[in-house]
């Protein structure tokens, strides 16, 4: 128990501190590295909650793909972050007002909200006993939600077609790698010359 509580506080504290450092850092590369640290700590919290699948996904997807992409963008593109921050003070007032209004709305809605009596019975779908949560999620995704899984696949197919339709152009004068031609090359199509040492061709 004490180990669990202790690790929760460690993870949570590091998460918050590194989250603040993501925003506060002047060097964008450090920001991204702190972002990765934040993700790792959030994954740790998920493991403590017993949601090991989410924890692994967080590490694989966010750390492995998203954060690395961020790192590439930050290092490859020459973005002047000081320029981006200009006007922060000027718009801070308006931003604060919008933020306060939104928070007030959320408080208003949450405090006056009431659950429908039937909600508990409808929404209750606890973890089935005796299976890992990866297995439980897979069961739901590939049986109950099979239709949505397939339809989402078609959406991604359209996104691919759309990206190609709108951006792909046949360019003149581009040398393409023709793998078939490369592989079909054999001894006869290559001329082999013996070069005596020290004379050159």
């Amino acid at each position: 128990m004490i180990v669990q509580a202790l690790s929760f506080y460690v993870f949570a504290a590091v998460l918050i501190v590194s989250g603040v450092l993501v925003v506060a850092n002047r060097n964008p590369v450090y920001s991204v590295l702190f972002l990765i640290l934040t993700f790792f700590n959030a994954a740790g919290l998920f493991v403590l909650l017993g949601a090991e699948f989410l924890a692994m996904m967080l590490v694989v997807v966010y750390v492995g793909a998203v954060a690395v992409l961020f790192l590439f963008v930050v290092m490859m593109l020459d973005i002047n972050f000081a320029e981006l921050r200009q006007g922060f003070v000027r718009y801070a007032g308006i931003g604060a007002v919008v933020g306060i209004v939104l928070v007030a709305e959320i408080i208003f809605v949450v405090s006056s909200g009431a659950m429908s009596p039937a909600a508990g019975a409808l929404g209750g779908s606890p973890m089935p006993a005796g299976v890992t949560n990866t297995e439980a999620l897979g069961n739901i995704l590939y049986t109950d939600y099979f239709y949505l899984f397939q339809a989402a696949g078609v959406v991604l197919l359209i996104a691919m077609i759309g990206a190609i339709v709108l951006t792909h152009r046949e360019r003149e004068g581009v040398r393409r790698q023709r793998i078939a031609a490369q592989l079909a090359r054999d001894r006869r199509s290559v001329e082999i010359k013996k070069v005596p040492t020290g004379t050159g061709i």
Partner: peptide, 10 residues
Amino acid sequence: ALSGATEPSL
């Protein structure tokens, strides 16, 4: 869930 006569929540 909504067919009951209770007042709907905000």
